[in-house]
Each structure stands twice: as C-alpha cells, then as structure tokens.
C-alpha cells in the first residue's frame, strides 16, 4: 500500500481515530489536503467507520433508567431556575441572554443538589421565588471548566453505590470565582474520615480541600478562589482517614475524565 511508503502518510490512522495532539492533527490536515493517497484512504475509512456502530445487539434499557437520567437533568434545571429567581440581576438581551441560558444550563450538572445546599438558608419561599422567575432575567455564573468525575470502582467502596459520580468545575460570576466539587451516591464518611480533593498537573498533586458525606451520599465542596488555583488538568478525590493529609493515604474514590468539551461530537 503506497500510503505506508511515505513517512508523512504514517499518521493517517492516528488522525482518523482521533489520536494525537492538536499540533499533530493540524500538521496532518495540511498533509491530507495535498495527498491523494491519504484522501482516498480517508474516504474508505469514513465510509466504513460510521457504520461500525450498526453492528449491535439492541438491548432494552433498565426500566428505572429513564426516571434517573431525566430526573437528574430536570431537577437540576429546576434548581438553576430557582437560583436565577433568587438573584437580583441586570436584564440582558439578545445574544447575551441566549448565551446566558446556555451557561445556566451548563450549571445544571452541579446545581441539582449543590444549589439547594448553598442557597437553602435564604430560599425560604420557593413558591414566591418561582412566581417571580419570569420577571427576573439572570446574569448567570459561568462554568469555565467542567470535569466529569467517575467513581473508581476498583477501590471496593462502591459495591452498594453502583451509580456514583460527580463533577468539578470552576464557576465565575461578576465578582467572584469558585471551585465547586460535588459527588453523589458515595459512601458516608465515618469518624474523622474526609474526602480530599486533589488537583493534578504533570503528576504533581495539590490539595484543594476536604469535605465529609452523610447518609445521603451527597458530598460538596465550594471553594472561593481569591488568589487563583494552581494549574491543573485533572482532578482526583481520595477518602482519607482524617482531613489533615498532605499526600493521599486513603483509596482513590473519584477521578476526572478530560474537561468537558461539548463540541467534540
């Protein structure tokens, strides 16, 4: 096959399967534009690759999955709207308002359980808040980075919690920035135990704080950022014997996937 004869063509399959860095991908795109062999090969790939997913046994989803999936999403949406109603905010218009809505909806993943917790003490009259919702157009917080946190089942701690997961995100509003972590479906902390959040960059770990979890299985940490956070590209959560760890001593409970990028698909 002639594609193998040219060193530049070597990166074709890595490019097509989405491997490699952005720089490598851009470099290959330039090559692809001028290489008929690779263009032809890429044509075969696309023709076949997109159909591989059809080779599938169709399964019936578990009966409770619909309520769980949609319930989580809509409960979070509802909580976001209540938050909008409880803020005093400047009206926004047009594109800004539309984008704002996206940001608010981006918050939904964290908000279903986080927002009632954070705002519960002053959201005293939910009905009134809801009624005023239409009159109040929010200048919302923005999620700068969102990490999905997956439970580390090999820790052996999730045998009774098959659906545990969480998120970590940087939330910016007009005059403040917060690093928010929430997990749910996770084991409660016993005695002095604490969940500890670690920020990782190139293998170097920095503690971002600790939190505890009660019988509800819900854990939250909201950290106001006054002097910035160290740079990090992933987030891990361990279960420590107490809240004084300088380095992890307990099992890893959650780990991040890459930061969410909605434009991937």
């Amino acid at each position: 096959m002639s594609a193998r004869d040219n060193r530049e063509c070597e990166g074709l399959f890595e490019y097509l399967s989405g491997e490699g860095s952005d720089v490598e991908r851009k470099r290959f795109e330039k090559h692809l534009a001028s290489c008929t062999v690779c263009t032809e090969e890429a044509g075969i790939w696309r023709e076949v690759w997109d159909r591989l997913g059809e080779d599938l046994e169709i399964l019936e989803p578990p009966a409770d999955l619909k309520d769980e999936v949609l319930g989580t999403i809509f409960a979070a949406e509802h909580a976001s709207e209540l938050t909008e109603a409880t803020h005093s905010a400047k009206p926004t218009r047009g594109v800004k308002r539309f984008r704002s809505r996206l940001y608010v909806r981006g918050l939904l993943v964290v908000s279903a359980l986080v927002i009632p917790f954070l705002l519960g003490w002053f959201v005293r009259d939910l009905q009134r808040a809801e009624d005023s919702r239409t009159a109040s157009i929010q200048s919302p917080d923005r999620i700068e980075t969102l990490f999905q946190l997956a439970a580390v089942r090999s820790s052996g701690k999730f045998e009774d919690s098959p659906h545990a997961y969480g998120v970590a995100c940087l939330v910016k509003s007009e005059n403040k920035e917060q690093f928010v972590v929430y997990v749910f479906g996770t084991p409660k902390t016993e005695a002095a135990e604490a969940y500890q959040v670690w920020l990782l960059k190139d293998g170097k770990r920095t503690s971002a704080g600790t939190f505890t979890v009660d019988e509800s299985g819900i854990g939250i940490m909201a950290l106001p950022i006054e002097h910035g956070l160290p740079k990090f590209d992933s987030v891990g959560i361990t279960l420590e014997p107490d809240s004084r760890s300088d380095a992890p001593r307990g099992p890893k409970m959650f780990g991040s996937m890459k930061p969410d990028s909605s434009s991937r698909a």
Binding site: P61, V109, A150, H163
Partner: peptide
C-alpha cells in the same frame, strides 16, 4: 453501571450542548 453512567452523560450532553 458504566453503561448507565454513560447514558446519563449522553443525555446531559444533549441538554447542555453548545454544539
């Protein structure tokens, strides 16, 4: 369990997606 987690993330993505 992992399949359920993925389904949750897919529909959350559909609801929040900017793309």
């Amino acid at each position: 369990p992992l399949a359920r987690e993925a389904v949750q993330l897919v529909y959350t993505r559909l609801w929040t997606t900017k793309a």
